[in-house]
Amino acid sequence: MEEGSNPSGVDAEAYRVVFNSLKKEPAYKLSPDFASRVAARAHAPAKTFDWDKFFLIGGMVLFLAVLVYAIAVTQFTFSAGVFRFFESYSTLFVFGTVFIVALHLLEKKLLGHISTGNNR
């Protein structure tokens, strides 16, 4: 059939099953209100103000302002307090930071691989 020949026997029967199945409607279904929901979404007025962006930028500006204020008020220097302690263990802290970042990256990669079901 595929090569212009006329299949017979099991070949013909197998092709018959294949062609019948290919004509069969798959069972994928959308919700009954799909069309009206999508049409409403397409015609929804554009967002005039992005509150998420507002809070993100606002938060960052506020954080910087408080940081500058704190530095000014406490007359902060890196040789003070807890930073002197960090100085004696600098290698350990660098290693710890690199280890934690690497662990997160590895976890993200492995979990991403599993969740996509990409096991081919």
Partner: peptide
């Protein structure tokens, strides 16, 4: 910008889109 026309267009072609997307992504 006719909303009803768009709704009609979706109804007319949702079968095609569902078949195409459904067959390709295998994930309901």
């Amino acid at each position: 910008g006719n909303k009803h026309a768009f709704e009609l267009l979706i109804r007319k072609h949702e079968r095609l889109v569902t078949h195409m997307v459904g067959r390709l992504i295998n994930n309901s």
